[in-house]
Design a protein around this nucleic acid. Structure first.
Lengths: 247, 247
DNA sequence: ATTACTAAGGGACGAGTAG
DNA sequence: TCTACTCGTCCCTTAGTAA
């Protein structure tokens, strides 16, 4: 986001400009006093007067004195200023709607349990039907290190998911599994101010699992895919990866 | 326009909130430092730190400390705050597009010239063809009193208009006339903070004229209509009227 | 009525710095 | 490094008031 450094432009200046616009101050000189303006911004008449003087100096409004009162209207520059802010806000809000939850963590060795679970018929058929593929036998385990990723991971359970039913066989009960479509990619970037950025490395489509039996360990994420993620993406233990939930 | 009085919410708070949103701070905790924030608002790290503390206190952002750094994201309230401002701005801007130029003035006696000009064949036919009616012979003259209406009246020439050509007969030359579709209505309102408001009085569709020969007198507006405006609207000399240009 | 100047007080901003 | 405290300075807000 680029913000022009406007000398003498604070929240009151902004509010007064918006107010003038909303009551028709783009095409007409409005008869509105500093006293009325002061009520809009909840400050004294003197402060409102000062704001109006500032806005006039910055060429954001024009004023025409008539007797003791002023007629006031926005200048083209004043209108453009509001439009810029509007566009900036609109972009941010629109952008936020496409914005997905992501996690950063290191690949660690699993307990080998993953392979066992993936191979159980009770899960295998459901995975095949609901994910569209039979998972490679074995989960990729990613350990989160920053506390805020663990909080986000705890929030996962509230996100829309593909639900795999639990089942029992003669020996024991197997819990439900929630699957979240996601992409995984190696983290090779220096953080420039914000989002994860990738460099020539291919994202791989995967699913993040939330297992009934382990969903309280918020620092671990288990990931499955149609093929071995480590092999396809050439990843090894200790590598840092970024997992983006697709929603 | 209604503006919630937010204690501790100034332009910097607004800018930082927008920035967080634009880089994905709605769904994820972002690793962003007070130093980076200070560059966004062009203030010191200390001031940015203060702004973040304020935003957290006001429950507009959440922060999770991890070692020395924070992960930061917007709260639902923070997001709603930006959305409110966005909607307010959008309404103002949309509104301004429907906003028409208007004039307030008093009805005065014309020189009787109007009737003469209206009756000239060279104009009459063009009025009929371009306005769709033959004007009542005689113009209504409205005298502007506030200086800012005179400035707006001077701007009229830049607005889109219906152009009536001048002509000459054996005696002399008659100049062009620009016509602007407008409505006229008696001004009976106490100014409540803004726009002209009407009370049970019917607007009448008319045209404002700008005559080549008199367009330098910015305090006088000449109005024509299919019937006598004074009679139809029951107006007399000295009454204050509002003339809204329709564009 | 207005607008806006002056003076005074308080709050905001930033340098220095601790943790 | 990071955040955020203290404190000095300066700016902003407002009461009083002139025009």
């Amino acid at each position: 986001m680029m913000v022009k450094d406007r000398a003498n432009f604070n929240y009151f200046h902004f509010l007064i400009l918006v107010h003038l616009l909303s009551i028709g101050g783009r095409n007409n000189y409005l008869e509105i006093t500093s006293g009325q303006m002061s009520r809009i911004i909840n400050r004294s008449q003197q402060t409102a007067s000062k704001v109006l003087i500032d806005l006039e100096r910055e060429n954001l409004i024009e004023r025409v004195k008539n007797n003791k009162k002023f007629g006031i209207r926005l200048t083209e520059e004043g209108y453009q200023t509001l439009q810029e802010i509007y566009i900036m806000l609109k972009k941010s809000i629109d952008n936020s709607k496409n914005n997905k939850i992501f996690f950063k963590g290191k690949i660690v060795t699993g307990m080998g349990e993953g392979a066992y679970y993936m191979s159980l018929e009770g899960y295998k058929k459901q995975f095949h039907d609901k994910l569209g593929y039979e998972p490679y036998p074995g989960t990729l385990n990613v350990r989160l290190e920053d506390k805020h990723y663990m909080i986000s991971r705890k929030d996962l359970i509230n996100q829309p998911s593909i639900h795999i039913e639990g089942f029992k066989n003669s020996d024991r009960t197997f819990g439900w599994v929630k699957c979240y479509a996601a992409t995984i990619i190696q983290d090779v970037n220096i953080n420039h101010d914000s989002n994860p950025v990738s460099k020539n490395i291919k994202e791989m489509d995967v699913h993040v699992l939330l297992l009934e039996r382990t969903h309280h360990d918020n620092s671990l994420i288990e990931v499955i895919g149609p093929q071995s993620i480590k092999e396809v993406s050439n990843l090894k233990n200790g590598d840092t990866v970024i997992i983006k939930i697709k929603n």
